[in-house]
Amino acid sequence: MYVRTSEVRGDPTRIDDGTRMVREEIFPAVTGMDGCVGMSLLVDRETGRCIATTSWESEDAMRASADTVRPLRDRAEQVLGSTSGSEVHGWEVAVVHRDHAAPDGACARLTWLSGDPSMVDRAIDMYRMVVLPQIQDMDGFCSASLMVDRAAGRIVGTAAFESREALEATRSAAASIRTGVVRELGATADVEEMEIAFAHLHVPEMA
């Protein structure tokens, strides 16, 4: 499985307009394309940052859709009031574990890691054996995933929780886990916390 992320910073006051467009226009159009299996949208209402993710059965299907998807992305940028365009990345899905569906009001913590490409396989093993067993026991846990860009040495782990309160309550424990992972891999890390505005990615269990 592969996913494409489109990261855009728009006008915070237009987040609801953008979410509505994703739900009513972009989601039906994208999931009608060959090989697409779903879509999700994460938003930060304070900064206007949004991350739209589409899931694909294969890397070929993801790449073949690039030109068809571009006009939809342009339209979303307009609705969101973005003046800087989107940053687009393709990822291999390495791990997915779902305890239950994310309810309304759910939030996610995204941990972005960058390092030498040779660390990617070690990072996947560490996520499966060390990170996932700990975060799935946290109160309010819904699901977790790990996506990798092997060539660039980039990784993003996403952990979804039932509410903003549940997410905030796990910050200290997540920071402790992250410190150990970064030290072991020799990587650098950035963290974001975002609202799950739309969750229909439909990626199968890959734990």
Rank of each mutant, 00 (worst) to 15 (best):
L41H: 06
G48K: 04
V79K: 07
V30L: 05
V88K: 00
P71G: 15
L80I: 14
T31D: 11
M33H: 06
I51N: 00
G81V: 01
A64H: 03
E57F: 00
V37A: 03
V43W: 05
G32A: 07
E46K: 14
G90R: 02
D60K: 10
E46W: 11
R49H: 15
P28L: 07
V37H: 04
G35E: 04
W91M: 01
R63V: 07
M33Q: 03
D34C: 02
S86H: 13
E57G: 04
D34I: 10
G85Y: 07
D67H: 03
D34G: 00
E92C: 02
A76E: 14
S84R: 13
S55I: 09
S82W: 09
T54W: 03
G32C: 11
L41W: 08
G81K: 00
R49E: 15
R63H: 10
M39I: 10
V69P: 01
G32E: 14
A29F: 12
R49S: 12
R63F: 05
I51P: 00
G90D: 06
L80V: 10
S58V: 04
T53Q: 05
G32R: 02
R63A: 05
S58L: 02
A61G: 03
G90I: 04
T68H: 11
T53R: 03
G85A: 10
G48R: 13
S65L: 03
E87L: 14
E92Q: 02
D44V: 02
G85D: 06
L41V: 09
V43I: 07
T31P: 00
T54P: 00
T83F: 08
G90Q: 02
E59M: 14
C36M: 13
V69G: 01
L80A: 13
R45Q: 10
M33S: 04
E57R: 08
A61L: 08
S82N: 14
A52C: 06
G85Q: 11
G38D: 01
C50F: 11
D34L: 10
E59L: 13
D60T: 11
T47E: 01
V69I: 08
R63C: 02
G32T: 11
T83Y: 08
V37M: 14
M62V: 00
